[in-house]
Design a binder for these strands. Structure first.
Lengths: 110, 110
DNA sequence: ATAGGTGCAAAATATTTGCTAGGGC
DNA sequence: GCCCTAGCAAATATTTTGCACCTAT
């Protein structure tokens, strides 16, 4: 699962895990995802008009949510650390950040 | 409402509007917020662990959600347009973007 | 009269929780 | 046995929707 780049919803994870552990329940999935997210081991991505996505990558990167296919793409671009630094100078303690783009992905655009 | 900087939830907006229009319903609030957001006239901000916030500013800016007080602060920093441009060069059609920081705000940090 | 927007309430969706029970030490 | 975690189902939270009605054109 660590190598997963598909940003699945809790539901999708549930279905997948169920193949391995047929009696697992959705509640358990949510419970564990929440704990993992609190620990900072995974990333919870709340999305407009839909269930949250989960990301198993914890290195800083962006996401692009396609309006049409709904797929969440990883965007490989370096984070401008200047933003975080600037915030910290202003007295904010940044725990995590999230940069989200919405629009049409290359596939759906054409 | 246009000058509002408090990033209210639909519920908060409902309560406020109800002062003016006592018989308004929450469903109508949601309905109208959704339309406005689709038109790009307001911004819908999905938040982890809570209801979406709405922002009446449409100029590009960031938000900082405090883990403790839950308040959404406006962060006044210029958007690096290079990111969007880079995405567009890669074939993405960017409709809107959203940069969200989570952590402790200056008030709650101390 | 017709179109568009609304109230109301039910439905749909998403997530959390209480409680009981089972597995590992 | 004790503790931790899970299953299950109910509860909660959030958002959307159907439908009848009202109002302005």
């Amino acid at each position: 699962m660590q190598g997963d780049r598909s940003h699945p919803t809790a539901e999708a994870i549930y279905l997948r895990v169920k193949n391995q552990i047929p009696h697992i329940s959705l509640g358990t999935i949510y419970r564990n995802l929440k704990v993992l997210a609190e620990q900072g081991l995974i990333l919870e991505i709340p999305v407009a008009d839909g269930p949250a996505r989960y990301d198993f990558r914890t290195d800083n990167h962006y996401h692009f949510i396609c309006d049409k296919c709904g797929h969440a793409h990883d965007i490989e671009m370096p984070l401008p650390t200047s933003l975080t630094q600037s915030l910290q100078r202003s007295g904010y303690a940044v725990r995590t950040q999230q940069i989200l783009f919405y629009g049409l992905c290359p596939n759906c655009k054409s």
